[in-house]
Simulated assay, not measured.
Amino acid sequence: MQLMERFPYIVVEGPIGSGKTTLARKLADRYNAQLLVEQAEANPFLTRFYQEPGRYALQTQLFFLFQRANQLRELAQRDLFGAATVADFFLEKDPLFARITLDNQEFQLYRQIFQHLQVQAPAPDLVIYLQTPLDALQERVQQRNISYEQNISRDYLHKLSDVYSEFFHQYDAAPLLIVNNDKLNIATEEASLTLLIERIMQMRGRREFFNPNLQ
């Protein structure tokens, strides 16, 4: 049995710089699966958000919320979840960003809109959480050399990393593999991707951990 036969809908998650999009693309390419990725470059507020977070946080967050909800709704309507799908986001994580970027009144408004959307997306068959140390996140963001990301502060990355850890510490809606992503070079080493796939296929429980540093 191949990976996508066992897990037809896989979500890869992690903070910015964790390599989630790279891994999602590589899995989709290897198994000829439908790829669903965030489209950050389409958000007209994102550059301004990293320059003035307090001023543009709500606009940035709501744009992403509607974008992601529309992507999932379109897939559900076209019944493409019948085919193998790999995504680098799921809607459940959207409030994580909102919680650390919005003030209390803005967050309450965001929550009302989030709940009103009621997007009916199927639960993933597998979630891969790329748990990445703060230093590695910061280094990878710098290496990507995307202009607007160079304004991301270490403090913001630290808060983001913390809320991800807290979220996945409690997450139990789908099988979850937590990956120590410090030394896993998916982007440049095909052997790392193969090693990860082998570990996924060994999963037997709903919540497991993979530390390739100990292999």
Rank of each mutant, 00 (worst) to 15 (best):
L3R: 05
M4T: 13
M4Q: 09
Y9F: 14
I10M: 06
V11Q: 02
V12S: 00
E13W: 03
G14C: 03
G14E: 02
G17Q: 03
G17V: 02
S18Q: 09
T22S: 11
L23Y: 08
R25Q: 15
R25Y: 10
K26C: 07
L27W: 09
D29F: 12
Y31T: 08
N32F: 12
Q34P: 00
L35G: 11
L36Q: 10
V37F: 08
Q39C: 08
A40G: 10
A40K: 10
E41Q: 14
A42V: 07
N43S: 09
R48H: 13
F49G: 01
Y50W: 08
Q51G: 08
G54L: 03
Y56C: 02
Y56A: 02
Y56R: 04
Y56S: 03
Q59R: 08
Q59C: 06
Q61Y: 03
F63L: 06
F66A: 11
R68D: 05
A69K: 02
N70P: 00
Q71F: 09
Q71S: 08
R73V: 05
R73C: 03
R78L: 14
D79E: 15
L80K: 14
L80R: 14
A83Q: 15
A84I: 09
V86A: 10
D88V: 01
F89T: 04
F90C: 07
F90R: 10
L91I: 13
P95L: 08
I100P: 06
T101K: 02
T101M: 04
T101P: 04
L102P: 01
Q105T: 12
E106G: 13
F107N: 09
Y110A: 02
I113F: 00
Q115L: 08
A121T: 09
A121I: 01
A123T: 04
P124T: 00
L126Q: 01
I128S: 02
I128C: 03
L130K: 04
Q131L: 07
T132H: 01
A136W: 01
E139T: 13
R140H: 10
V141E: 04
N145I: 01
S147I: 07
Y148C: 05
Q150E: 08
I152L: 05
R154V: 11
L157N: 01
K159N: 09
S161M: 11
S161P: 04
D162L: 13
V163C: 14
F167M: 06
H169V: 04
P175S: 07
L176G: 01
L177E: 00
V179A: 03
N181D: 11
E190G: 09
A191M: 12
S192T: 02
S192H: 15
I197S: 07
I197A: 10
I200V: 15
M201S: 12
M203N: 09
R204Q: 15
G205I: 00
R207L: 10
R207M: 07
P212S: 13
N213G: 15
Q215N: 15
